[in-house]
Simulated assay, not measured.
Amino acid sequence: MVPTVRAAGPSDAAGVVALLRAARPHLVVTPQVLAWQATGKPAERFGMLVAEAGGGIAGVARTGLLHESAEPGLGFVNLVVHREGWRRGVGSALLAAAEERLVGLGVRLAYARVVDEPASLAFAERRGYRGGRRNVILGLDLATAVLPPAPAPPAGVRLVTAADLPDPRPLYEADLAAAVDEPGDVGMDEISFGDWRAAYWDRPDLDRALSMVASADGVVVAFTVALTDGRDRYLSGMTGTRAGWRGRGLARLVKHASLRAARSAGLRWAYTLNDAGNDAMRAVNAWCGYRPVAAEWRHLRTLHE
């Protein structure tokens, strides 16, 4: 199998979505999301490469800049290769082309999400990627799950949906405030309101009616963002609470309300990613009924100084 690597085009969307959904069931991905990633997030400089072999798409590499960090020169490369393409040069060809693109964008340090299984980890390590933080992927079957009783909002806290917000700027401010000490390899410490709006608020898979916001005196103090594929999958994109409001059950409040609304909307599979070191959020997710279904590691490699 000799793969041909090229830039992805609109006609590749259906094949890429099928590959991603099969390999990563927790991903919320549609052709519309792929098209938006290519055009709707200019600061990210998103680019997608596909490897063709055997008459079809054997693998895909998604690349771009980690533009939310104040540190320059950070980028990402995430590979997914069809099982039939393993050990046949597909991943190596894709990674080489992806790294070449990142170098052209001025990337100094490349981050990659690597599935927590021996073959994928060994592939990354052989190519100079070193392990970083671990994410646990949690799943919940909304059709059979018994959600705990809904918690009551604390005094002075109002629970609304993101669709109820007349202006998303308070949510942007809360997102930045909550991300200051969020566990992770790369922090969100430099993103303008315009870039945030393009990257998050205007994304086609954001379901504002399922995204919940807790506010007090007009200030967003906690929130959870819901992404859906319009079919059966729901992904918790981010849950955050301002530092001064933690310990009051607000994460449970917003996540429970969002999951209940998702079930009412007919969604079946709920997923969330949890940093393995974030014990507080892991406790919240366990309370909601989430259980581990997979895991991945963030790996990184210096491309050039």
Rank of each mutant, 00 (worst) to 15 (best):
70 A>Q: 11
114 V>K: 04
51 A>N: 06
166 P>S: 10
212 M>S: 07
51 A>W: 07
251 A>S: 09
91 G>C: 07
268 R>E: 12
25 P>C: 15
149 P>S: 10
302 T>S: 11
61 A>G: 12
34 L>D: 04
303 L>G: 05
143 A>F: 02
137 I>K: 05
54 G>S: 05
304 H>C: 14
153 P>G: 02
271 Y>H: 13
41 K>E: 08
75 G>S: 10
39 T>R: 15
280 A>K: 09
187 G>W: 04
80 V>Q: 02
48 M>E: 04
221 V>E: 06
223 F>L: 12
43 A>V: 02
118 P>V: 08
14 A>P: 02
201 W>F: 15
15 G>N: 03
133 R>V: 13
241 T>L: 09
120 S>F: 12
265 A>K: 05
126 R>A: 14
283 A>E: 10
127 R>C: 04
169 R>I: 02
126 R>P: 02
263 R>M: 11
140 L>A: 08
111 Y>L: 12
61 A>F: 09
299 H>R: 11
38 A>C: 08
192 S>K: 10
157 V>Q: 00
216 A>Q: 12
113 R>P: 00
171 L>I: 03
87 R>W: 11
70 A>C: 12
2 V>T: 13
240 G>A: 10
222 A>G: 08
211 S>K: 07
157 V>R: 06
74 L>W: 06
28 V>L: 11
79 L>Y: 05
53 A>R: 05
56 G>T: 15
39 T>D: 13
235 L>Y: 15
37 Q>H: 15
97 A>R: 15
284 V>G: 11
28 V>E: 01
18 A>L: 09
165 L>N: 03
120 S>Y: 06
191 I>Y: 00
83 R>Q: 11
168 P>F: 08
280 A>S: 12
217 D>G: 12
271 Y>F: 15
192 S>G: 15
53 A>F: 06
304 H>G: 15
124 A>N: 01
57 I>W: 12
105 L>E: 11
59 G>R: 08
72 P>M: 10
135 N>V: 03
230 G>D: 10
37 Q>P: 00
265 A>D: 03
91 G>H: 04
5 V>D: 05
155 A>C: 03
21 R>S: 13
272 T>S: 11
219 V>C: 03
270 A>M: 07
288 C>G: 01
247 G>N: 06
284 V>T: 06
190 E>W: 03
60 V>I: 06
144 T>S: 15
243 A>C: 00
188 M>C: 09
11 S>V: 04
81 V>W: 02
188 M>D: 03
23 A>G: 10
34 L>E: 12
290 Y>M: 06
44 E>F: 06
237 G>Q: 12
9 G>P: 02
300 L>K: 08
295 A>T: 04
225 V>E: 06
136 V>N: 01
116 D>W: 02
113 R>N: 05
73 G>H: 09
90 V>Q: 04
86 W>N: 00
72 P>S: 13
64 G>N: 09
55 G>Q: 06
113 R>W: 12
267 L>P: 00
203 R>L: 14
